[in-house]
Design a binder for these strands. Sequence first.
DNA 1: TATTGTTATACTCTATAACTATA
DNA 2: TATAGTTATAGAGTATAACAATA
Lengths: 150, 150
Amino acid sequence: MASTAPTPQSTTSRRPDPLTLEVVELIGEVVARFHEDYESAAAEHALTGAQARLLSLLCLEPLPMRRLAQRLKCEPSNVTGIVDRLEARGLVERRPDPADRRVKVAAATEEGRRVARSLRESLRFAREPLAGLSEGERVALRDALRRMLG
Amino acid sequence: MASTAPTPQSTTSRRPDPLTLEVVELIGEVVARFHEDYESAAAEHALTGAQARLLSLLCLEPLPMRRLAQRLKCEPSNVTGIVDRLEARGLVERRPDPADRRVKVAAATEEGRRVARSLRESLRFAREPLAGLSEGERVALRDALRRMLG
DNA sequence: TATTGTTATACTCTATAACTATA
DNA sequence: TATAGTTATAGAGTATAACAATA
């Protein structure tokens, strides 16, 4: 591709070049749409965003309340309420930890896993828009995202 | 680039190919980091995410309460409270609309614009990670995102 | 009658601090 | 004493419904 002029400034400098600014803008758009899509998919399953995120985590593996808080980047006291509400609906259960009786391990129930799977499948964004890209473009996008995320 | 085998299924079909799944996963990562970064940048300015978004909108142009709700994709009743809190801090003001006395136009104050500018500059994510990409990669990323967003 | 903004209400998420039961 | 989870509390965002002022 045309790499005619060398970038005059690093992108970490105070005034990013127009290209970087546009990419930032576009990423903001993607973030907004993704978020919107996630919330509405959750709502279709009568879940809030936080509940959907927690349930999706537990769908991979059971976790102590403390670890859940770390993963969700919130205070442990909040996890109590979210798990309470999911447990009341039979999507999650609390199990004792034989090794440490202070610990409670949260785990998705069979129905919880079913709901999480359905939720995952109803996530349309980032799948439909991707359909417009060729395989080569998807590879390029993947590589750029990988490098961005370190 | 290698386009050896034709993609067996459309990306909108029930079972997306591994490449598409990975890109979805990566976008999810980007969304999470961006969101986190935005919230913490807002918090540095003693703003909530919703307040920061509303203020940023008003920084571009004054808007009636109703339009603000549409832009923020929430109910008009919520906007009342968010604007109340920003107005109490002198970052936003309500103006009458001469053409329609039912309407109140919200506008950023001078200080509001200053805070919004500072907020925008403290958004590190999507700028620092982008620094790791070559210009060619940023162009490829831009083009892919543009096409994704239609 | 319809529309704009607001108020009232209820629920969820959030952080902080204090509490309990274990370790 | 230190840690895991909970409870209590308060602030903010959200949707719904009802309301006053204006069109």
